[in-house]
């Protein structure tokens, strides 16, 4: 049962990991993107649209689905959808210097609306009885895991049983961690979020870094939505099923004190906390809800502790939430 729990915890954690890695990269540039829940949602529905189009095209043409295309089309449409969302946010907050909180919240409203609109429309198109779209075929491609994983007992189940997007999430987080701590561009990005005036004086193109980090961050977060439908939910999209995972991803950013490496473990922990109630015997429904509170409580605790300890390395980027205008200084 433990192995099953770990496996489910990881699968719960992966969307959060995508979301928080994307948000960490964004926040490192000094932009608090509260649109992440919307972006993840759009990432999911964009993937669904792509998959839906391809599945239908194949069905109507009467031939089987090409594995590579079945993955690539949803993948790219997910990236495109979340990139567009990121661009809206950037344009408003970086170029037009709009309030980040308001823009982010509006983006989430918009993103969820966008997702539900297209989700609803697709459901109507399929004429299905249930309020959901089922893309099992595409999902099967996404969920393909190593064939020999089953033969490796608990080891296979805990480490090798996931679809490729799960490994990609971990890989991206590790890459992000290395990028932020070991590369020149990462250094520059951190400088932009900490002290844009200094970065500007050092000849760093502040706006470019803000745009790139927000857009790339959005695309990464969008993949979280894609993983959720295609892998976790077995290719079944129903409106609002994504729940509060987007906000949980933002909580994870704080929990991980803005470090993608910690976010990997944190995401599994959060994933575990999210489902742990299913594994505690004789727990009634009401207590389950209390357990779901745990990730948020833990996050507040972390937030309070880091602000009380005032350890500089663990603080949010100094310029988080503030827009930069060179001539203001």
């Amino acid at each position: 049962m433990i192995t099953a729990f770990i496996q489910r915890a990881v699968m719960q954690g992966i969307p959060l990991l995508y979301g928080s890695t994307g948000e960490i990269i964004t926040e490192k540039s000094g932009h608090l993107n509260l649109g992440i829940p919307g972006i993840m949602y759009v990432g999911g529905i964009s993937g669904v649209i792509g998959a839906f189009a391809y599945e239908n095209a194949c069905t109507s043409a009467g031939h089987g689905m090409n594995g590579a295309l079945a993955i690539l089309i949803p993948f790219l449409s997910c990236l495109l959808g979340s990139l567009l969302m990121g661009l809206i946010y950037c344009f408003l907050t970086v170029t037009l210097r709009a309030n980040q909180n308001v823009t982010g919240l509006a983006l989430t409203t918009f993103g969820v609306g966008f997702g539900n609109f297209f989700g609803g429309s697709l459901i109507k198109l399929t004429g299905s009885e249930l309020p959901s779209i089922t893309l099992t075929k595409t999902s099967d491609f996404f969920r393909t895991s190593l064939p020999f994983a089953k033969n490796l007992g608990w080891f296979g189940q805990v480490f090798l049983s996931y679809g490729f997007l799960a490994y990609l999430a971990v890989a991206i987080s590790i890459a992000a961690a290395i990028f932020l701590s070991r590369t020149r561009k990462g250094l520059h990005l951190r400088a932009v979020g900490e002290n844009p005036a200094t970065a500007d004086a050092a000849g760093i193109n502040v706006e470019r870094y803000k745009y790139l980090s927000t857009c790339i961050g959005s695309m990464i977060a969008g993949l979280g939505g894609l993983y959720y439908v295609m892998d976790y939910a077995n290719g079944i999209w129903s409106n609002d099923a994504f729940g509060d995972r987007g906000w949980l991803a933002i909580a994870l950013v704080i929990f991980a004190v803005w470090k993608p490496g910690i976010a990997i473990l944190g995401s599994f922990l959060f994933g575990g906390l999210y489902i742990v109630h299913n594994y505690i015997p004789n727990l009634d429904f009401s207590k389950q809800e209390l357990f779901k509170m745990a990730p948020y409580l833990v996050t507040i605790l972390v937030l309070v502790i880091i602000s009380m300890r005032k350890k500089r390395e663990n603080q949010p980027p100094q310029h988080l939430g503030l827009n930069y205008f060179r001539e203001e200084r």
Binding site: L92, N116, F117, G120
Partner: peptide, 19 residues
């Protein structure tokens, strides 16, 4: 259409005003 159309429209209008 479905209900969520309103959220899209609201989102767009807010984006314009924010901008």
């Amino acid at each position: 259409l479905n209900d969520s159309f309103s959220e899209i429209i609201t989102g767009i209008i807010i984006f314009f005003i924010i901008g």
